[in-house]
Amino acid sequence: MQVGTASGCENPTSYYFNQRGIWLTYVLVIFLAHLFILSMPFFTTAIAWTLTNVLHDIAMFVILHVTRGTPYMLDDAGTARKETQWEQLDQGKQFTPTKKFLTIVPIVLFFLASFYTKYDKVHFVINASFCALSVIAKIPWFHGKRFFEINKW
């Protein structure tokens, strides 16, 4: 923190997801969580994949699009308080590598889940809706938009 100089330090929330180690960790966590769900004897392969997909999408939606503010900055006078984590990433730039990566992961998960659920109709409805939620929330047009005053203030 360099208070009183012309350039203050950057908000860490905007760049911590850029590290390749974080990308690898993210993929590994999904994989391990999937293995854990799969190891439950009462889940079939199809249910295990749908569960992985749904849990991932919900978790990432909460982490990226519901959680606001930054825990690291003392002196930003509340600038980041109203911005979600996704909006803070790369200081609000669109189509950066990190944002592309975070968008493609739920899509790939959806493809895998579709394959392992044998393109079943019920599984499709569940998986597709959660996948759509993740992808649509990341479209640039939705940047900074709030609907029905949810998460607005």
Partner: peptide, 24 residues
Amino acid sequence: YHLIFEALLIIWIFKLMFSKAYAP
């Protein structure tokens, strides 16, 4: 319907691949 949905997602992936980063 499944194939159409997947096609849309693949198109979106291609769009992402060929878009440059920009600051709005």
